Amino acid sequence: MEQQQDDSPQDTENETNTQQKTRKSVEASSENATSSSESSTTTEEATPASFSRLKLFEKVMQKSLENVIEFASFKRFVSTFRPLYKKNPQRMENIYKQFIEELKKAIQEDIVRLIEEGRLKTKLDELDKLEKASKSKTHAWRPSGIPEQDLCSFLMPFYQKQEAYMRLELKKIQAENAALTKKVLAGRERISHSEQHISEVVEDWKASLKESEKLVSSLKPDIIEA
């Protein structure tokens, strides 16, 4: 009994030591995996002019991924599979490392798929452009005190837009008319070809009919004599 009581603290101490070693190795690998992203984000933070919502979103997702990996610690993993860990600690350590790698890979693939399917890059870039446009200095319109000039300055852009729109519509209509005239001319040409072909067939038929009549008339005396 005394030996068993002496061995159990040693076993628990060995387990804690191996857990600490495994946790340190996993944390080191995760730090190496995220070092590149952190270095890029530090350079982005140093230059606020290059602010991008997409980069901020990627940074938040990376931080969330780190929190998930931290939550799925080796201690929790061992507490869940303690009987298997006692049988083969090294194998469970390898399984945990592989599990963490597969988990990170799956989450990163889901994030990339979310960005692509949701078209987040385009939408977030549009938001950045709108924000820049809203910050640009634009002078508000103020009346000059001359009603005629103010009315012209107010209505002229509207008329110019309407004129540009009408010109564009006119070009479209002209292009459609040109295409229709080409189709009509092509149809007329086909009709003329078909009429010419029909007339040629009729002439050939008339010529063959005359030849057959001549042949019949030449054969009539022979038939009468017979």
Rank of each mutant, 00 (worst) to 15 (best):
M156R: 05
L56Q: 10
E102W: 02
M92A: 04
R113K: 10
R167C: 03
L54Y: 05
M61G: 05
S8G: 04
I173L: 13
K132G: 00
Q160Y: 01
N67V: 07
T41H: 06
W205I: 01
L127H: 03
K214E: 09
G118C: 00
M166R: 00
S192Q: 06
A186E: 13
E27T: 12
E44R: 14
F154E: 11
Q3C: 06
K123S: 12
K121C: 00
S153E: 14
K86L: 14
N14G: 03
T47K: 13
A178V: 05
A33K: 02
R190V: 05
S217F: 12
K59W: 00
K135D: 07
E45R: 10
Q10A: 12
R142I: 14
T12D: 13
F99W: 01
E203I: 01
M1R: 04
E102A: 09
E2T: 10
G118Q: 09
A207I: 08
Q62M: 11
Y85T: 02
V216S: 14
S36K: 09
V202Q: 15
R119F: 00
T12R: 14
L84A: 15
L155A: 12
K63A: 12
K97Q: 04
L180M: 13
Y159H: 07
Q62D: 13
K121P: 00
V201P: 04
E45K: 08
S37C: 04
K172E: 15
V201S: 07
L185C: 01
H197Q: 15
K161N: 13
Q4D: 15
K161H: 09
F99N: 03
Q4F: 11
I69D: 04
E102R: 08
V26S: 01
S199C: 03
